[in-house]
């Protein structure tokens, strides 16, 4: 698979993943562009992998974690993009409050919760992506859910965890 093919097919999905991870589209654009720049340099090797997409996603996560360190130093109070069209609906207000809480999570907690509940990875896969042990992953997710004020026992069956 050629690099241009990969970018054409996968960039929108990478942008979605990076936006969920960073909660900011402008950051996601920079993140994806930088990662694709690095991926281009190694494309011959990456494209030969069994799961090139998983590798690129890991690059996105690693890049995000290192960026967050820079962001914390440069802009400790960096906020979430404001919602342009406030609608006042309760559900949307709750959703936006969730995005704000997500954006305030420590970087590893946020990465863990996104990899678990957005990417659908197992504890083992998340541990591999984040370079930590599985108990650490479970601990990070537990803390994240507390900070997000999510009660798993109140979750509808079709949104229960699958792994």
């Amino acid at each position: 698979m050629e690099f241009a093919e990969y970018v054409a097919r996968q960039r929108p999905a990478l942008m979605r993943f990076a936006t969920v991870l960073t909660c900011r589209t402008w950051l996601a654009e920079d993140l994806v562009s930088d990662v694709l720049g690095r991926a281009f340099e190694r494309w011959e090797r990456i494209s030969a992998m069994a799961e090139p997409n998983a590798y690129v996603r890991r690059m996105v996560v690693n890049e995000y974690l290192s960026w967050r360190r820079r962001l914390t130093r440069a802009s400790p109070r960096a906020g979430v993009e404001p919602t342009v069209t406030p609608d006042g609906a309760d559900e949307r207000a709750e959703r936006d409050a969730m995005i704000r809480r997500l954006a305030r999570l420590p970087r590893k907690q946020r990465a863990a919760v996104v990899l678990r509940y957005y990417a659908g990875l197992s504890d083992r896969e998340i541990a591999s992506q984040l370079g930590c042990r599985e108990p650490t992953v479970r601990s990070q997710i537990h803390r994240a859910l507390n900070a997000l004020r999510i009660d798993l026992t109140a979750t509808a069956p079709d949104f229960q965890e699958t792994s």
């Binding site: 997000l148 949104f159 229960q160």
Partner: peptide
Amino acid sequence: MSDLRTLH
């Protein structure tokens, strides 16, 4: 408290 639906 919220649930996973709100996170999704």
